[in-house]
Amino acid sequence: MTRNEALFEFLQRMGDNTLILGHRISEWCGMAPVLEEDIALSNTALDFIGQTQFWLGYAGEIEGESRDADRLAFHRDAWDFRNVLLVEMPNGDFGQTIMRQFLFDAWHSIYVARLIKSSNKRVSEIAEKASKEIAYHLERSADTVVALGDGTEESHARMQKALDYLYPYVGEMFLSDEVDAEMAAAGIAPDPSTLRDEYDLLVQKVLDEATLTVPGNRFAQKGGKSGAMHTEHLGHLLCSMQWLQRAYPGGNW
């Protein structure tokens, strides 16, 4: 694998994480429990789509096959996506959505903070711009996890259930492969396996405050970031996200 091939993979991973999670939470638009959360989630979704444009736009430039961000977002199929499985998991109830958001935001904030120091100027600039949005995402999702976890009996039970359901998808964010090794060697991105302790500290602190119990089992579902095997949920998501561009290629308004 050449360095540019690895960089293309890395950029797709970044862009696909934000694209898929951004689409997932946009599914709440108009349907969240209260107006304030509805707008807040939609804002977060838009932040992610904005970040996606940078990551996938740059990915297309590196690939050099004249695919832009839209082309990559709407004309690849499930096996071409490189997002971690966590972000394609269904919304479930509001608690599950917020728990997924928190588990991702915590990783995102730690990882992107490292990318600001990337040897690649474009990566560093995108990370710098995204980091302020990400800091707010994390603050908001962490606070909501605490409020619901340490809330009523029912909200606590739902948050614990969400954590138990999603925890097996946390480990994939810290798996390293040859793409990560190449990126780390080039000083472009950190080796994700070196970030787990920092993540565990952050997550444990919030979940303690939320009176939730971190599952002891570290078994990790994987296959998303490598593209080897996505969950069955991704195809359904792409179906609603991509149908217009598939039915009317290049259509715009």
Binding site: L35, E36, I39, A40, N43, D143, A147
Partner: peptide, 20 residues
């Protein structure tokens, strides 16, 4: 105006609803 459980969340919600 908006609804929120406490002052801190009210500021966050205000940020999202009124300063976007």
């Amino acid at each position: 105006s908006l609804h929120a459980p406490d002052a801190e969340m009210a500021i966050k919600n205000a940020r999202d609803v009124y300063t976007r």
